[in-house]
Simulated assay, not measured.
Amino acid sequence: MPITLESLPVELVIAILEELDLASLIVVSYLSRRLHSIASDRSLNPWRAPILRNLHSEVYEDCLKHLSVRTTVPRQNWIEILSMAQPRFLLFEATLPNMKEADWREGFQRRFLPGWQKWKRDLSWNGTFKKLLYRYIVLNKNGSANELEASSRNYNPLSIFNDLKLQSNLAHLETHIRLVVQLTDVRILALGVLNNPRGAFTINKNARAFLHPPGIEMYSDQVSSGGSPGTASSKSKSGYSYERLTHPLPAPSHAAYPFYTPGGGDKRWLTVGTLEEEGQQWVGGLMLTAQITSSQTSMPWGDGPFLQDLDLVVGFGRSQYASFTFADLDCIAPWMKELVTKRIFGPGL
Rank of each mutant, 00 (worst) to 15 (best):
Q167R: 13
Q308M: 09
G239L: 02
P87V: 07
F345Y: 14
H176W: 08
I79Y: 14
S298P: 00
F345L: 00
E58R: 15
A94P: 00
P334L: 00
T297Y: 06
T274R: 10
G285L: 05
G263W: 07
S29M: 12
G264V: 09
T246N: 14
L211T: 03
L133S: 10
W269T: 02
S298M: 11
A145F: 00
Y257L: 03
I14V: 14
M99Y: 11
D122I: 09
G143F: 06
Q320P: 01
P74Y: 11
G346A: 07
W78V: 03
S294I: 01
S233G: 10
V69I: 15
E101K: 05
L96N: 12
L310A: 07
G227V: 03
Y60R: 01
P252D: 12
S7M: 09
M84Q: 15
S57V: 11
Q296V: 06
H56Y: 15
L5I: 15
V28Q: 04
G143E: 03
N196R: 14
I216T: 07
G239T: 07
P214D: 01
E61A: 09
A150Q: 09
P2L: 14
G143L: 07
R70P: 07
S29D: 00
L191Y: 03
Q296D: 13
I14M: 11
Y242L: 11
P46N: 10
R42T: 09
N206S: 07
S32M: 09
L90Y: 05
A102Y: 12
P46F: 13
A150Y: 06
S37F: 11
T72Q: 13
M336N: 03
I16A: 10
S68E: 03
R153C: 10
R70I: 14
N146Y: 01
W282H: 12
K267L: 07
E18L: 05
S151H: 09
L312E: 01
R88E: 14
I26N: 02
E149W: 12
G215I: 04
V283N: 04
G302T: 02
G192D: 13
N162R: 15
L270D: 12
P258F: 03
F161D: 03
W269N: 09
A322K: 08
S241Y: 15
G115N: 04
I203N: 02
W47P: 01
G346M: 08
P300V: 05
G226S: 06
S294G: 10
R187L: 08
D103K: 12
R187P: 00
V314K: 05
L35K: 05
G264F: 06
E80N: 10
S253G: 12
A232C: 08
L349F: 07
L139M: 02
K342R: 15
A150V: 05
I292A: 10
L164S: 03
L123P: 00
C63S: 13
G226T: 04
H212Q: 13
L166H: 10
P305H: 12
R343L: 06
S7K: 14
R318V: 01
D21N: 13
V13D: 01
A209N: 15
A49D: 09
E243D: 12
K342N: 10
V138S: 05
A85N: 06
D309H: 01
N195H: 12
R135E: 13
A85C: 09
S228Q: 08
D330L: 05
S37I: 00
V180F: 03
L35M: 13
H247C: 08
L339T: 02
M1S: 11
R70Y: 13
A171L: 13
D309P: 02
K100L: 11
A200T: 12
W269I: 06
